[in-house]
Design a protein around this nucleic acid. Structure first.
Length: 251
DNA sequence: AAGGTAGCCAACCGCGACTAC
DNA sequence: GGTAGTCGCGGTTGGCTACCT
């Protein structure tokens, strides 16, 4: 016999999360850590699927999340990584601290894609749109993603090698394919990309605030983020408690 | 002011890989 | 070794908001 089903569809709530549900989930994770997602809803007293809990946590409630639009440097990095990896959003997100794959995917589809098209660059192949049209005429039976030429791809680095987004299905050969590119090879190590530029983002009324990615302190951002996702609805008392719990755990 | 449209984003769905039984 | 559950990922959708006519 296998395992039990992830959730018994009956009685499982769907749709937007309420402040109360968020509170329960946050409280549970901060107290118990991320364990088996299947068990989370039951243990946390939620009528949700474990899958839904995981998504809510990773995409919205995680204390180390950055809120707000991607800055220019992040956007450039996303474009660069997408040129090499294609739609492997989780891989791309793993190199952008505080950003989720969902967030990057949304940003790509709503902002970057349009920007690139406006600039005459095909967002799939990262080639100039004219070239893409020509390629499609010449080789309709060939691969969907022609190999980008380094000189023609304005958003790719000078260290361009022979991979393309078309390689995205060849997961087992990733290491071999990308080992010559420092940027890509770092994706297959556990450590996040060390960016030597500071994160810059507009802080409400003080112009630009800067902080370095390496000095990232989740506990600080956690407190700042409370305002961002409408924590007022939760009641601040509970978040004071979370802060205490989180700090205790760190000690 | 009201209705229509476009943009944005949180959340869901379905699939594949992995793994427990 | 086969079956079935879990997890994570990428694609898609639906609802809310802002903007336009």
């Amino acid at each position: 016999m296998g395992r039990q089903p992830c959730c018994d569809k009956l009685g499982v709530k769907k749709g937007p999360w309420t402040a109360e549900e968020d509170k329960k989930l946050i409280n549970f994770i901060l107290t118990n850590g991320q364990c088996c997602w299947r068990a989370v809803p039951k243990l946390a007293g939620l009528r949700r699927c474990g899958k839904s809990c995981r998504l809510r946590w990773t995409n919205y409630l995680r204390p180390d999340l950055k809120r707000g639009l991607l800055n220019q440097a992040e956007e450039q990095l996303v474009i660069d990584l997408h040129a090499r990896l294609g739609n492997r959003w989780s891989k791309i997100a793993s190199k952008l601290p505080g950003r989720t794959d969902n967030e990057i995917k949304n940003h790509w589809n709503t902002h970057i894609k349009k920007k690139l098209i406006k600039m005459g660059i095909d967002p799939v192949t990262h080639e100039p749109l004219n070239n893409v049209e020509k390629d499609q005429k010449y080789s309709q039976s060939e691969e969907k993603h022609p190999q980008p030429e380094a000189a023609d791809a304005p958003f790719t680095s000078s260290k361009e090698t022979s991979y393309s987004p078309a390689d995205q299905n060849s997961s087992s050969d990733d290491n071999n394919l990308y080992e010559n590119d420092p940027l890509i090879s770092c994706l297959f190590r556990d450590d996040p990309l060390q960016m030597d530029f500071p994160w810059e983002f507009p802080s409400s009324e003080e112009g630009l605030a800067t902080f370095s990615a390496s000095s990232w302190d989740p506990s600080c951002q956690w407190l700042l983020d409370c305002q961002d996702f409408g924590v007022h609805d939760f009641g601040f008392e509970c978040f004071n408690d979370f802060g205490v719990v989180a700090n205790r755990e760190r000690e």
